[in-house]
């Protein structure tokens, strides 16, 4: 199980990029924190989600 935005999700073994796309995220409008650190964008297609990882996916919406 991977904890993503406070929910336990069956995503162990998946590439971060694949998870984001499957879950419907727009990669150009987010930032990803994993276990306390930000994941660089260039690492999305190299980062494999592991059992016990905790992720916070921050989605940006327009307005300011």
């Amino acid at each position: 199980m991977v904890r993503i935005n406070g929910k336990n999700i069956e995503a162990s073994g998946k590439l971060l990029k694949d998870y984001l796309l499957e879950a419907g995220y727009d990669i150009t409008r987010l930032a990803v924190e994993k276990n306390g650190d930000i994941v660089p964008k260039a690492q999305y297609d190299k980062t494999i989600l592991e059992d016990g990882d905790a992720l916070e996916i921050v989605r940006f919406v327009g307005g300011g």
Partner: peptide
């Protein structure tokens, strides 16, 4: 900023390149 893509660009850029700085961002106030 006001455009979502620009917000994401700045947040990722700052957090990747300046791990010693603090960043305060905003999303969702319309």
């Amino acid at each position: 900023f006001d455009v979502a893509e620009n917000k994401a660009m700045l947040v990722n850029g700052v957090l990747e390149r300046f791990p010693e700085k603090y960043l305060v961002a905003a999303s969702g106030m319309a």
